[in-house]
Amino acid sequence: MTTQRRGRAIAMSDDERDAFLASERTVRVATNGTHGPHATPLWFHWDGAAMWLTSLTRAQRWKDLEADPRIGAVVDAGEAYTELRGVEIRGRVEPVGEIPRIGEPNPELEAVEQAFADKYSGGQVVRDGKHAWLRLVPEKITSWDFRKIPAS
């Protein structure tokens, strides 16, 4: 994985990044479509090594990723300039489990699905037969936390 070179003074530590990604609920993902970039919001789970996304298998995003698995993902927060912070992850996605997901046993997805359910649906794992899992393995992670900028 490529390390962050610029903005290291305001970069999040690994622990700060993991805590931030655990607390935030929405990621914006950008895919490469036939008509240019396609950006959409999704829910996600960060396991400390990969970002897990669930996507409708009939969505444009899924078609884009079948043709080109490269993706950019941004999670950010803050309103005032001195509050801005976020994480950008670039890499490639790979489908995990059956497509669409209906609940076939998959040890690789058990913890992911439960963590996702705990975050978004009160602990109830939902498999609707319309979505499938994508694992985004980071090739580069960039983070920023403007709260670290010294006051002038």
Rank of each mutant, 00 (worst) to 15 (best):
L84A: 09
V74Q: 14
Q114Y: 01
E108N: 05
I71A: 12
I71M: 15
P107F: 14
A73Y: 07
E94T: 10
E98N: 13
T57R: 07
A50S: 15
L53Q: 06
V93L: 05
W43G: 11
G97A: 07
V75R: 08
V74P: 10
V87E: 04
L65T: 01
A50I: 00
L56E: 11
R90W: 05
D76I: 10
G103L: 11
V112H: 06
D64V: 03
L65V: 03
R90M: 08
I99E: 12
R92I: 00
E79T: 11
E110S: 05
R90A: 09
A77N: 12
I99Y: 02
N106M: 04
V96D: 01
L109P: 06
E88G: 05
V96T: 03
R101L: 14
S55M: 14
R61N: 09
R61H: 14
P107H: 14
D64F: 04
W62Y: 12
W46E: 00
D76E: 15
L56D: 15
G91A: 09
G86M: 08
E98V: 11
A111P: 05
T54A: 12
T82M: 09
R90E: 14
E88R: 09
P69K: 04
P100R: 11
R90S: 10
D68R: 11
D47N: 00
P95L: 02
L65R: 05
M51K: 02
A50C: 11
V112F: 03
D76K: 13
D47G: 00
P100W: 12
E94H: 03
T57F: 04
R101M: 13
V96I: 11
T54Y: 03
T82L: 08
L84I: 07
A77G: 04
E110G: 02
M51G: 03
A111G: 04
A80Y: 14
G78F: 11
V87C: 08
K63E: 11
W46R: 00
A80K: 15
R101Y: 02
R70K: 08
E98G: 14
I89D: 02
Y81E: 07
E79G: 13
